[in-house]
């Protein structure tokens, strides 16, 4: 039986129709439905758009799957899935699944994953052979902060124990730092692996979010970069670790030592969402576990602000544990268009 729907990669000329589809069927006023510049930033790759489309016999878009390529030059690249939507009441009950299958069958890749999947869709991903899990949320609280506007901290705050041999240098020379990073052999093997160009585009050229970069040194030996972003609510400020660009086996130690930047800062806390971190090292060290906590609250949504803990689920085709962060995929992005966004 042949399908009455056609599945194909998007062309740049499909842009307006995809944006309308997002506004009509995903979320009215979503930034990707009305901000052409942001849409291009996120999904344009040369003369193509990184979307798989399902079209009916009249060429009307009935389903979309957005994706991003972390290193399009390579066949062994890692691909992250993003916006995935098929309209209801179609005569094909598995069209959504076919969009992912089309991408898997038609683009060379090493692994495919998605950060921020809807909990209800976990069964679909599992059926397609993905592993699923949840990013673990940690936070370290500023012991000198007397009033918390954003977070609900634990009753007793930890005093940090930091190793003096570590140094975190704020930098704006991200490109130079990345040159050093890509020479580290362990970084080349890292999964998922983001290319220098992807990192520059994603974090340095982001049209709305301003990321703060710290070079990491242990005993003057360069280990990589921490990508962070400041968030604000009322009079409170906090620093979020959005990504750590380093060898996977150094990441938990980097995060644990990074709390030294909290000293004498204006931040209430530092938080991080990630998978495959060393939970023992972090909770015996400087961090509190936020995931599943009834006593600690660290918000994830800032526009509008929601004072509650949020779970972030992920799926991956890789059987080996991977280190995913909130900065992976389309997670750390504004949802609504504004003239100037410093927070979300």
């Amino acid at each position: 039986m042949s399908s009455s729907f056609k599945v194909r990669f998007a062309k740049y000329s499909d842009k307006e129709n995809i944006m309308s589809f997002i506004g009509n069927y995903w979320a009215k006023n979503h930034i990707l439905s009305n901000d052409q510049m942001f849409f291009d930033f996120q999904y344009r790759h040369e003369d193509d758009l990184q979307f798989v489309l399902a079209l009916d016999t009249t060429n009307r878009i009935v389903g979309v799957l957005g994706y991003m390529q972390y290193d399009p030059e390579k066949n062994e690249q890692d691909i992250v899935l993003a916006l995935w939507k098929v309209i209801p009441n179609l005569s094909d009950p598995v069209l959504g699944i076919k969009l992912i299958k089309y991408l898997r069958d038609n683009i060379k890749h090493r692994s495919m994953f998605c950060v921020g999947i809807n909990k209800k869709t976990i069964g679909v991903y599992k059926f397609m052979g993905f592993q699923t899990g949840k990013l673990v949320h940690f936070a370290a609280f500023n012991t000198e902060c007397k009033t918390f506007s954003i977070a609900i901290p634990p009753l007793k705050k930890k005093f940090f124990v930091c190793d003096d041999s570590w140094n975190f240098k704020k930098t704006k020379s991200v490109e130079l730092s990345l040159e050093k990073l890509i020479k580290i052999s362990g970084y080349k093997e890292k999964k998922p692996h983001k290319s220098k160009n992807y990192i520059l585009k994603r974090y340095v050229k982001h049209p709305y979010f301003f990321y703060i970069f710290y070079e990491v040194y242990e005993k003057n030996f360069y280990l990589g970069l921490v990508v962070s972003r400041e968030v604000q609510y009322l009079s409170g400020r906090a620093l979020r670790i959005i990504d750590v660009l380093a060898e996977n086996n150094n990441i938990s130690r980097i995060i644990n030592e990074f709390v030294s930047t909290l000293n004498k800062s204006c931040y209430e806390y530092i938080d991080v969402y990630a998978s495959n971190l060393d939970m023992y090292l972090l909770t015996k060290g400087n961090y509190e576990l936020v995931s599943d906590s009834q006593k600690i609250t660290i918000p994830d949504y800032f526009s509008p602000f929601e004072k509650k803990n949020i779970d972030i689920h992920f799926c991956t085709t890789d059987n080996q544990p991977s280190c995913f962060f909130k900065g992976d995929g389309d997670q750390d992005n504004p949802r609504i268009r504004r003239e100037s966004i410093t927070n979300d």
Partner: peptide
């Protein structure tokens, strides 16, 4: 009955039916 007859019958429901 096909999926176009019932609103709730999408990919997610299909996978639940399969399970």
């Amino acid at each position: 009955t096909t999926s176009s007859d019932i609103d709730q019958w999408d990919s997610l429901a299909t996978v639940n039916i399969i399970a």
